[in-house]
């Protein structure tokens, strides 16, 4: 066995959940407290490094910047100043291409918080919930509606159709705005802004969403990711991404393990044996399906076409045995 094969075997046999936990924790600290260490990855990150976390953030979510820019007066937006929008988008796109929706599965602080809430639920022994297929199909459209509104409303402000108070409409209802600053000791977002009718409604709505976020994330894995417009935006841009999830349908036995571990309840991951590119719009590229697959080579994560993590029988057995030991 060559050295490269040894490394590949070690990676494929890794205790994936533990590895992911520590990686998520690393990124969480980096993006939520990185500012205290003078770390700044800029304002074009394709993940919820919330801009409202003023002191600690190690970068800023691009959606906040994008909404601000979209709300510029049209005269400005469609002038030379629009180049700033394009350059910001280009940086966002370069960041995104590297990790694809892996930004959601490994980097997003809000996703990590939801995973921690799931761990809390598991510790209490309360079972989780799943959507019915009909619910799934209907609710999956919400993120596209939010994405469309996220563009339309700021553009409408720039065109003079809406009030400026509606600027950054998604940020106003995003649980990242209310939850992430709490980790830096900033509680100012937990208030209702009565300065105008619009801000009152939007800030109230934001707190309702925060309440739903906590309740939802407790009973449903990655509850908010299902409605996240960033996820929809990612999917629309994901064609040239380097990190990909591939499936070899000929090796799939449709055992359904991948579906059962999927936080997003994506049926295609188990049912679809035809498509090679198996990532869907709801996928967060957490790779839990790869880790749970017992068929060697059926599922794999590739980076620029090179397999970096592959399902193997040996890895599956090792991970399952570890689980059994934990139970025992």
């Amino acid at each position: 066995m060559t050295r490269l094969e040894e490394i590949r075997t070690a990676v494929n046999n890794v205790q994936f959940n533990r590895f992911r936990f520590w990686l998520q924790l690393f990124f969480f600290v980096l993006l939520v407290y990185g500012g205290f260490l003078a770390i700044d990855f800029g304002k074009s990150l394709p993940t919820f490094a919330c801009g409202y976390n003023k002191e600690g953030r190690g970068g800023m979510c691009y959606l906040m910047v994008l909404q601000h820019q979209m709300a510029w007066p049209w005269q400005k937006l469609f002038s030379e100043a629009g180049l700033a929008v394009l350059s910001g988008f280009a940086i966002f796109y370069l960041w995104f291409i590297a990790l694809n929706k892996g930004w959601c599965g490994f980097v997003c602080p809000l996703g990590t918080i939801q995973d921690w809430i799931t761990s809390l639920r598991r510790w209490t022994g309360i079972r989780y919930s799943r959507y019915t297929w009909e619910q799934f199909k209907g609710l999956a459209l919400i993120k596209y509606v939010l994405l469309a509104l996220m563009f339309i409303i700021p553009l409408g402000i720039g065109g003079g159709w809406f009030q400026k108070d509606l600027r950054s409409p998604f940020c106003m209802i995003c649980p990242g705005r209310t939850v992430i600053p709490l980790f830096g000791g900033d509680f100012t977002q937990l208030s209702v802004d009565f300065s105008s009718k619009t801000t009152m409604i939007m800030s109230g709505l934001g707190l309702i969403v925060m309440g739903l976020f906590f309740v939802g994330a407790f009973v449903k894995k990655r509850f908010f990711c299902f409605y996240c417009p960033m996820g929809a935006f990612h999917y629309l841009l994901s064609k040239p991404a380097l990190l990909r999830l591939r499936k070899d349908g000929t090796k799939c036995t449709r055992c359904g393990d991948c579906f059962r571990v999927c936080d997003q309840e994506i049926k295609d991951i188990a049912d679809d044996v035809d498509r090679k590119e198996i990532m869907t719009d709801d996928c967060i590229l957490c790779m839990k399906c790869v880790a749970a697959c017992p068929e060697t080579g059926a599922l794999k994560a590739t980076f620029a076409g090179i397999p970096i993590f592959e399902s193997t029988e040996k890895g599956f057995i090792k991970r399952m045995n570890k689980g059994r030991q934990a139970i025992n």
């Binding site: 919930s129 209310t178 509680f187 100012t188 937990l190 208030s191 209702v192 802004d193 009565f194 300065s195 800030s203 109230g204 707190l207 309702i208 925060m210 309440g211 739903l212 906590f214 309740v215 939802g216 407790f218 009973v219």
Partner: peptide
């Protein structure tokens, strides 16, 4: 500028959040 104390209410904010959490939890 006007003080945020003139237009921001933590009582309402926490009240709304807690209501949603409790109501949502009981409903589920």
């Amino acid at each position: 500028y006007p003080s945020p104390h003139d237009y921001r209410s933590y009582a309402w904010g926490l009240g709304i959040s807690l209501f949603v959490i409790v109501f949502g939890g009981v409903a589920i």
